[in-house]
């Protein structure tokens, strides 16, 4: 009887000491809402940039040509999808090559980030996901600014 009781106590202690396996955190891609959500954010971002006199001249070619606009939109969706852990693959030009000679400044880049931030706010993206996304994309600053 004593032995059984003792074994029961030991078993309880062992089971209690076992850490419950934590569920792996969903990727940022899934937390944002996947491809459909990213598309909606990108459409809003494109609208914000097109109305922003500080930087819309950089996108004049895309804005004037529906075929180029489609490529830009697809590239942006793929880029954000890939950066957030989604199945998309960005296959456009690397950022340095794509922006070479454009003389983009920190002010231009900040304006772009602001427009993206407004697009994320429009869809009530939570602060944590928003910060994660902007941080992931902020790493591109060095390849875009000052080229």
């Amino acid at each position: 009887m004593k032995k059984s009781f003792f074994m029961l106590v030991v078993a309880t202690l062992i089971l209690g000491a076992c850490k419950k396996e934590e569920e792996p955190q969903k990727s940022l891609y899934l937390r944002l809402g996947g491809n459909a959500a990213i598309q909606a954010v990108i459409d809003q971002f494109i609208a914000n940039v097109a109305a922003d006199a500080r930087i819309n001249a950089f996108f004049a070619q895309a804005a004037a040509d529906p075929a180029r606009l489609k490529k830009l939109r697809d590239n942006l969706v793929n880029q954000i999808g890939e950066a957030t852990g989604g199945p998309e693959k960005y296959t456009g030009l690397d950022m340095k090559t794509a922006h070479k000679g454009m003389k983009i400044t920190d002010a231009h880049f900040n304006a772009l980030v602001e427009d993206l931030s407004l697009a994320l706010d429009k869809f009530s993206v939570p602060a944590m996901e928003k910060t994660e996304l902007l941080t992931a994309l902020g790493g591109m600053r060095a390849d875009i600014v000052g080229q």
């Binding site: 819309n56 950089f58 070619q61 004037a64 090559t97 922006h99 000679g101 454009m102």
Partner: peptide, 10 residues
């Protein structure tokens, strides 16, 4: 936008 001569992709 077709008349705007902005910076272009190289």
């Amino acid at each position: 936008f077709a008349t705007i001569d902005g910076p272009k992709c190289p």
